[in-house]
């Protein structure tokens, strides 16, 4: 007895035929056991039978286009069938299996985790939203209004849900399961990381007088977004992770380069840095006060940079 499986281009099984006789004939003609509606297949194309040694053998019956083993470039007149590698005739992939073909072991189902992931997602969401609300409150210098809290928080909630939903949809399409909760957790962890980083950048700009983290905040934001996308893609399908990683990294590098270029062009157009010089409560200061003379010494050092800028600007002016 032989099972004949006709595969799609994605290697899903589109049809499976059970043949009771010891030999199977395959082709486009109606005198075959299995009919393949592929114009590149001969009317009588392939014969599968057991040879003297008892192995399953596929034999080309004189087709014009030939018979190939999975991925192979050379046509073969006779192939020993192992049941795993598909055989291509025309543009159709076929697989032949005997009834004693070994299947994978039964997978062990993971124990039910109950409400834990739900609670985790809810807690993380609340914390992230809470941090955001706290920030709004601490920077509120005009009259307090409910809408300054409500509108952005609703926007954030909607964005997170739509983002996770879209990824869940992709998962459903490509892997059959939506895994909404996992996607939601990825978004929430990303949002939490984003808000932590922005706090860190602001505090370091004031407390340590180290504005670099704030100036290059966009690099961190894009990196976090890229990491989120990578984990989403992994949930969609765990195959070819290195390729997905490479794509995400390429996009990330391109975006960061583009934004760096755009910022440096904006700076050379306006001559102004696009950063706010943040103040915080004096108790946040983490470095000692500089002596006045040392500070003015630093400032005197700026003159060399300004003069260098001037000498670089000159050649442009010379054309006037």
């Amino acid at each position: 007895m032989i099972w004949v499986e006709i595969l799609s281009r994605h290697r899903d099984i589109t049809a499976r035929v059970r043949i009771a006789s010891p030999e199977v004939r395959i082709g486009r003609g109606y005198d075959n056991d299995v009919i393949v509606d592929d114009p590149y297949v001969a009317a009588r194309h392939l014969r599968v039978f057991r040879d003297e040694a008892g192995q399953l053998v596929a034999e080309d019956m004189g087709s014009v286009n030939g018979t190939f083993l999975d991925g192979g470039k050379s046509r073969l007149a006779r192939i020993i069938v192992d049941g795993t590698k598909p055989i291509r005739i025309g543009q159709t992939d076929l697989r032949f299996r005997a009834i004693n073909h070994e299947v994978e072991r039964e997978r062990v189902a993971r124990p039910e985790r109950g409400m834990l992931p739900f609670l985790g997602a809810a807690a993380l969401g609340c914390v992230t939203l809470g941090i955001y609300m706290l920030k709004v409150w601490l920077t509120q210098t005009s009259e307090p209004r409910v809408s300054t809290y409500l509108t952005p928080s609703l926007t954030i909630i909607a964005t997170v849900l739509v983002w996770a939903g879209l990824w869940a949809l992709l998962s459903r399409i490509f892997s059959g399961r939506s895994r909404f909760l996992r996607h939601l957790l990825i978004v929430l962890v990303g949002a939490f990381a984003l808000s932590l980083y922005s706090e860190f950048a602001q505090v370091s700009a004031f407390a340590w007088t180290w504005p670099t983290a704030s100036t290059y905040q966009y690099v961190a934001i894009w990196s976090i977004l890229a990491a989120m996308c990578f984990f989403h893609l992994r949930e969609v399908g765990p195959a070819r992770l290195w390729l997905k990683g490479a794509i995400v990294t390429t996009v990330l590098v391109t975006v960061i380069a583009a934004q760096t270029l755009q910022q440096s062009e904006a700076f050379s157009d306006s001559g102004r840095q696009n950063t706010t010089r943040l103040l915080m409560p004096p108790s946040f200061r983490a470095v000692p006060f500089r002596d006045e003379n040392a500070f003015f010494g630093d400032i005197a050092g700026l003159k060399a940079k300004l003069d260098r800028d001037r000498s670089q600007a000159r050649p442009v002016e010379a054309g006037r």
Binding site: F289, F295, D309, R310
Partner: peptide, 15 residues
């Protein structure tokens, strides 16, 4: 007319 701005900031105490 101008070159780009250059800034410097710090905590300072005078004696």
């Amino acid at each position: 007319w101008y070159t780009p701005e250059r800034c410097h900031e710090d905590f300072v105490s005078a004696a």
